[in-house]
Design a protein around this nucleic acid. Structure first.
Lengths: 341, 341
DNA sequence: TGAATATGCACAAACGTTTGTGCAAATATA
DNA sequence: TATATTTGCACAAACGTTTGTGCATATTCA
């Protein structure tokens, strides 16, 4: 382990060279500054032997960069974000960055706070899975020149890049799966209204219904958040309504968990009494009471792409304005959809 | 958002005071250095108005502390660690720390690498959920004076504090639950052999069996890792053995998921064909095909305690040597245990 | 009124780097 | 041999803070 924290000054005096020369060698600029091969290797070797590591603060202070990235997610205990984060962290580590993480707890104020905190610590870039539907605070920080990529959600008329799933297409495809199984009275339980992934998913759903000539009176779109609570509450209402749906389409894993709770509390079973389909594959999806049909977002690809988009910016490759990368999702057909009629 | 990044020098020259005075006021040392109230408020006000934030690097360089903590977990996408982490992050944020996170991916080499990385960045402390069974690298870094707390796992003969669950007691209690339901031929699928939580849980299990006078020939202890794969493989073997158990006790949520997979692939159901009991409560535990009886570790308390133990060290309160704090777990009795005979 | 003390602030060094520039010594060129 | 060029390295400033110390001026005390 790094013990004594020797400074470049001591190292230089031990070697008998100037601080300048040592610094240059250690930063790979030996050739550029015409330093003798022999000198170079001597410095390299003693530096390693004495376990020299440069003081990051001094470096950062001088170079005005921290080799640090800030990542902000709404809820790190949500496996969806945790897995994306895992891939982001891995990618950034490979590029030599250390990563700060902040949990905004689904709260825009906290998100803004965290951004300020990270900016104050001069992160070289930010990856944010934004909470709300507003993007002004993101645009602001991006305009100050800090590389930024938004993940999971994108925004219109905005300069920074984003990586999302192909929400429209996969929601449409999933809806068609329900339609093919004979469902018409379908309830969609949505997440945060007006957020981009929600809007895209809802639109994909509507488009599918339109293409199958299902009149909007036939189906319903309810809910207002990606949470368990929303899933529970809305499902409970739907089941006890005058005209309960034959299938529920949940727009997140948490909504689905809430739905499961409500369905079981109402003494119903899947898929006999009601069919269920949800966004977000999880390790447990196949093992639920009735294995769940899910839409799996490619979290590995999303993480990798976020890293790429960020590094591109840091290296000076400006993002194309409004560039949104869509990662393809994949359906897992299981037994939670009943074939009717 | 922090725009112009004004320095203390500029701030001072705008105010007409010296850098010294400005610094002292902004660090709350106005009184100590007898600075006029009027001067103080004038400085405070303009600092706020101009949105001054001190350069962290310069501060850290001068003060030789980073106001940063490094947290290392084996797998952030495992909800168990993610939730603990969430609480740690929240606590540290409240104390003004930014937190680096590293995912060691269940790999000791990577864990050591991350530690070095964080040490090089002069974190003020480390919270580590250690991977392996060795603690020498932890002791080493602790001896260099870096505050450290181990979480989820503890070690013997070691100077740094740890927070774990009351693994022995809760494993014993859970085992007794199985015994009370008439099970005798019980298989324990363990996690990482020789790791402390595993050992404690296994010992709790054995102790229960002993108190109920069950001969070791009657039950079996198998497995060698907290992973899904281990859970799957061992369960599959057990189910197809000459004398399959009537109940399986899984020592982690991942082992349980693997067990679920094997049980379903073997065409068996819980609890009719086999009973299952597992460590780690998850949001989905109640919604599995047969709601699962689980032992819930108190992740909130574990996180909070880790923060407390770390801050204590940072503030100079030396930990009592070998201090291990055990957080109490709680059983959730559900339907995955069949009453036999 | 003169000395002692209190008040209010500034000088300058130090933290550990990076880097533009300058200057000898060594070598090449004419 | 004298000059030009190349080679090899060092000086010193700068990054933005914190802090020990010192020094005027103002106030109190005898």
């Amino acid at each position: 382990m790094t013990k004594s924290n020797i400074s470049i000054k001591e190292l230089a005096s031990i070697l008998g060279f100037s601080i300048t020369t040592v610094s240059r060698v250690l930063n790979g600029k030996a050739e550029q500054y015409r330093i003798k091969k022999e000198t170079e290797s001597k410095i390299q070797e003693t530096a390693k032997r004495l376990n020299y590591t440069p003081n990051q603060f001094a470096r950062s202070l001088k170079l005005d960069k921290s080799e640090t990235i800030g990542v902000i997610v709404p809820d790190i205990s949500n496996p969806f974000f945790a897995e994306i984060f895992k891939n982001i962290e891995r990618g950034l580590k490979q590029h030599g960055y250390a990563v700060f993480v902040g949990d905004s707890n689904d709260n825009t104020e906290l998100e803004i706070d965290l951004i300020k905190h990270f900016v104050a610590r001069k992160v070289d870039g930010l990856v944010i899975a934004p909470v709300g539907i507003s993007s002004t605070h993101l645009s602001q920080v991006f305009k100050t020149g800090i590389p930024l990529v938004s993940i999971d959600r994108s925004f219109k008329n905005v300069d920074f890049p984003a990586v999302t799933s192909n929400n429209f297409d996969s929601a449409k495809e999933a809806t068609i799966e329900l339609l093919k199984n004979g469902h018409r009275n379908i309830a969609l339980i949505q997440g945060l209204n007006q957020s981009q992934p929600n809007t895209d998913r809802v639109n994909g759903f509507i488009q599918a219904m339109k293409e199958w000539d299902i009149h909007p009176d036939k189906y319903s779109i309810v809910g207002e958040g990606f949470s368990i609570e929303n899933g529970f509450y809305q499902t409970d209402r739907l089941l006890n309504s005058a005209n309960p749906p034959t299938a529920i389409f949940a727009l997140s894993n948490l909504i689905a968990l809430g739905a499961l709770k409500a369905i079981s509390q109402n003494g119903q079973t899947i898929p006999n009494d009601i069919s269920l389909l949800t966004f977000d594959e999880q390790a447990y999806s196949a093992f639920l009471n009735t294995p769940m049909t899910t839409i799996e977002q490619n979290k590995v690809e999303m993480g990798n792409m976020a890293v790429k988009l960020l590094i591109d910016q840091i290296c000076g490759r400006k993002p194309k304005i409004g560039s949104i990368v869509q990662i393809h999702s994949k359906m897992h057909l299981r037994e939670s959809i009943k074939k009717i009629n």
